[in-house]
Design a protein around this nucleic acid. Structure first.
Length: 704
DNA sequence: TCGAACGTTCTTTTT
DNA sequence: GAACGTTCGA
């Protein structure tokens, strides 16, 4: 058996992580240190040496993208191996799989449906209404956050009811009611997938034993991102005969806001002892300049497991820093640079535009279209989150699970078919009386007028069509046709109409991946779960496109050329994080993640003014810019043609974006300048006195 | 019953 | 700016 190709390409530390079977392993893997490669090669090593079969290796990742990447790289490494039955996926998808297998044993309806955050919020809103809570004073989001946080810590509602404060008491009540709603409607939310699985393993010795012994090897990617519940889950699967490898990087911990606990990297050594710790510090991704910048910036954080990345590769291009006049100018700059990169032989997909928040993508999209640069936006409103898609999905959900009153409510009159509030109230009332689902109740009560035939057609559509079609895509086409959804969308004549109709077509073609299932019921369940758990449709057309995404979704990816945009105070670091030192550190790690995505060239930009949420903002450059090593930077402002406004005249020696101090107003940043002889004015944003125009002749500004 | 028109609010990140 | 909720008129 030849395993040289599996271990020879690894450095000593990677090799140890890939082949060591003595203890559990904690792998501290810096950015670009070959973390994925190590996991892939360990998997291949285990298989090829006969240490484990496919189904005996559990690999947990944080995104579906990462899971798919792992799967395809393993099969590339082991081209002749059948790898059916692998357990590679996100915590959520693995738990979903386990729950589907064991649903009946733990009293979960077999056809349970997974719901997303949006569906969750609808349920909570309804509960708030029932409880007569004032949405103004007590937003549903607040309760929802509470519920999800409790679940992520493993708490059920009965564990948070006898709290002293009114706030907790009410939250506990909402939580309890929420649990009831979910179980009545056979719905399971994201956190619930993991909580239920954890409880199942905790309470069922047989099942626990089965998986403890089945999973001889457990690999956990992005370990710094595990929350308490996920950590508990892994602990429950722990068994002496098995080896667990936790791979992570504390410097890339960017999800504490959703309950991730970095300290799990410390407790792992105790809880899973004996543990061997391996550090991967050699970076294979970036040039020296980029790495210097990354190391430099992350050192501003106090709390970290010291780790220093180094590289063999030499320094190349300096990091380009562009001070844009506004967000349009910034986007224009990015487009121009992309054209330049293309001219130098790069492809579009070599380029990534990263930003802090999704709202920033719009301007880039506009400019990229104008510049006829193909692009793809990740994140934002995902495919399966779009309203028209969710509308159709609601019909399918109701077909799969007739208990789902939320799906009923969404689909019953969307598109409108003349069934309004009065009818709906009747149905709800009847449902209450006979303890039936809305769908059943709709058949029990007396409906008159034009609502009656419409309701009958709706009922038939839901109950009959599933038996008429053998293939899921045909079923969905049928639903789209019967509901006249396309005509409805076209009647609205939005600028989005065409896109929405396209999306419906894409929905059908996404469903084709499930056409081979023997039973349509099963295909439907799988499809619906997939739609929620992996919001991207399986159809990926692989055209060469510039990639647009948030910094968060860029984690784990790499690109030859990276544009790190919008480095302005309040935007990045985000204003919500200013008050809290810990959160600023997390923003800094986010910045670190962004920088380390770049292999060859890194462009950093900020805008002096920015229109965001319909408002003009004047922010100073992000503190992260000041934290960069100045010797690695090349300032593009001043000798380029992007700035529509005149530059600050040399005699006053101020540059836009420069920090200056004023005798009365203190420190500020130069935002703008107007040349007008003796009346030349300079616009400065002061730290404590807002934005002011000052006459240069009198202002006596000093550079800082 | 439905959609147009208006006012309001909230702006982060993802499974 | 957009998404949401509310109100009002057809």
């Amino acid at each position: 058996m030849d395993i040289t190709h599996i271990i020879d390409t690894l450095n000593p530390e990677q090799r140890m992580a890939a082949t060591s079977l003595d203890h559990n392993l904690l792998v501290l893997a810096g950015a670009g240190s070959g973390k994925t490669k190590t996991i892939v090669h360990r998997t291949a090593y285990l298989i090829i040496t006969g240490q484990a079969h496919w189904h005996q290796i559990l690999t947990v990742t944080f995104t579906n993208k990462a899971a798919n990447e792992l799967k395809s790289r393993v099969s590339r490494l082991l081209p002749n191996q059948q790898h059916a039955g692998t357990w590679t996926g996100t915590f959520h998808s693995i738990c979903h799989k386990l729950l589907r297998i064991h649903a009946e044993e733990i009293g979960l309806p077999k056809n349970f449906q997974v719901i997303d955050t949006d569906d969750q919020l609808r349920i909570v809103k309804k509960i708030h209404k029932e409880m007569h809570l004032d949405e103004q004073q007590w937003p549903a989001k607040k309760s929802l956050n509470f519920i999800n946080q409790m679940k992520e810590q493993g708490h059920r509602s009965f564990q948070c009811q006898d709290q002293s404060s009114a706030f907790y008491r009410t939250c506990g009540e909402v939580y309890a009611s929420y649990e009831e709603h979910c179980s009545k409607n056979h719905l399971v939310d994201f956190a619930e997938l993991i909580l239920k699985t954890t409880e199942m393993l905790r309470d069922n010795e047989d099942i626990r034993w089965q998986y403890q012994t089945q999973f001889k090897h457990i690999l956990i990617d992005e370990f710094q991102d595990t929350n308490k519940l996920q950590y508990t889950l892994i602990s429950l699967l722990k068994h002496e005969q098995q080896r667990i490898v936790a791979v992570g990087d504390d410097d890339q911990s960017i999800y504490s806001w959703r309950g991730a606990i970095v300290d799990h990297m410390f407790s792992f050594e105790k809880d899973f002892s004996p543990v061997t710790t391996i550090r991967l510090e050699q970076n294979y991704r970036s040039t020296q300049n980029i790495l210097n910048a990354a190391n430099h910036i992350i050192q501003h954080n106090e709390k970290r497991l010291e780790k220093k990345l180094w590289t063999d590769s030499s320094s190349k291009e300096k990091i380009k820093l562009y001070a844009a006049y506004n967000e349009t100018d910034e986007a224009q700059f990015v487009c121009d640079q992309i054209h330049e990169l293309i001219r130098r032989g790069h492809t579009f997909e070599d380029c990534a535009i990263l930003y802090r928040s999704n709202a920033q993508s719009r301007v880039f999209e506009e400019k990229l279209s104008q510049a006829t640069i193909p692009y793809r936006v990740y994140g934002g409103l995902r495919f399966f989150e779009r309203a028209e898609i969710k509308d159709i999905i609601a019909y399918l959900r109701l077909m799969a699970n007739q208990q789902d009153n939320y799906a009923f409510e969404r689909s019953i009159n969307q598109p409108p078919r003349g069934i309004g509030r009065v009818t709906l109230d009747k149905i709800k009332h009847q449902a209450q009386l006979s303890a039936a689902s809305f769908l059943d109740a709709s058949q029990q009560c007396n409906i008159s007028g034009k609502a009656a035939p419409a309701l009958q057609l709706f009922y038939q559509l839901i109950t009959d069509s599933i038996h008429q079609f053998g293939q899921l895509s045909l079923l969905i086409e049928h639903v789209i046709k019967e509901t006249k959804m396309i005509a409805y969308l076209q009647a609205q004549k939005n600028h989005q109409t065409d896109a929405k109709v396209e999306n419906l077509k894409e929905l059908v073609s996404a469903a084709k991946h499930y056409d081979q299932y023997d039973s349509i019921q099963e295909a439907l369940n799988e499809f619906l779960s997939h739609a929620v758990l992996d919001q991207n449709p399986k159809n990926e057309h692989a055209a060469s496109q510039v990639q647009l995404m948030t910094l968060h979704s860029a984690k784990g990816l790499e690109f030859p050329n990276v544009f790190l945009t919008g480095l302005e105070d309040d935007l990045f670091p985000h204003k919500m994080t200013h008050a809290d030192h810990k959160q600023i550190e997390e923003e800094r790690r986010l910045c670190y993640v962004g920088i380390t995505r770049a292999k060859q060239e890194l462009y950093i930009s900020y805008a002096e003014t920015r229109r965001l949420y319909g408002q003009e903002m004047y922010q100073r450059p992000s503190r992260f810019i000041r934290e960069l090593p100045q010797e690695e930077l090349e300032y593009l402002r001043g000798n380029n043609a992007y700035t529509p406004k005149p530059k600050v005249k040399a005699s006053y020696t101020f540059q836009l974006g420069q920090t200056v101090s004023h005798a009365k107003f203190g420190e500020g940043v130069v935002l703008n300048y107007e040349e007008d002889g003796d009346n030349s004015r300079v616009q400065v944003r002061f730290l404590n006195h807002g934005v002011k125009w000052l006459l240069c002749a009198y202002a006596k500004l000093n550079p800082v």
